[in-house]
């Protein structure tokens, strides 16, 4: 994204009060208890085992730790994880969108 386009988008988001996940394709996480986690706008699975799921995001990554993790469904933009989720680690690059 060019700088001008990015700026224009940011202005639109601020001015119109739009949710950032729609416009910037920022990841959106929906956690239901410690059982189910829906991650939208991910960029692929990096590691997957029973204890740990590591996902790439548009910026940075996400690490989910727990027990008996199962990927319920997976489509290009969405992952649904089920199991006993104990920890979610978000690694942003610190770069401003």
């Amino acid at each position: 994204m060019s700088r001008i386009a990015r700026k224009f988008r940011k202005w639109t988001v601020d001015a119109l009060d739009l949710p950032g996940d729609l416009v910037f394709e920022l990841p959106r996480l929906t956690l239901i208890g410690g059982k189910q986690l829906l991650i939208e706008n991910h960029r692929g699975v990096l590691h997957f085992s029973e204890e740990r799921l590591s996902l790439a995001l548009s910026e940075g990554g996400l690490e989910v730790t727990g027990k008996d993790l199962v990927i319920k469904t997976i489509v290009p933009q969405e992952v649904m994880v089920e199991g006993y989720i104990s920890e979610i680690k978000y690694r942003g690059t610190g770069e401003k969108p």
């Binding site: 997957f48 085992s49 029973e50 993790l69 199962v70 990927i71 319920k72 469904t73 997976i74």
Partner: peptide, 8 residues
């Protein structure tokens, strides 16, 4: 695909 379960 559904129910992706890692095994040892």
């Amino acid at each position: 695909v559904w129910e992706i379960k890692p095994l040892p």
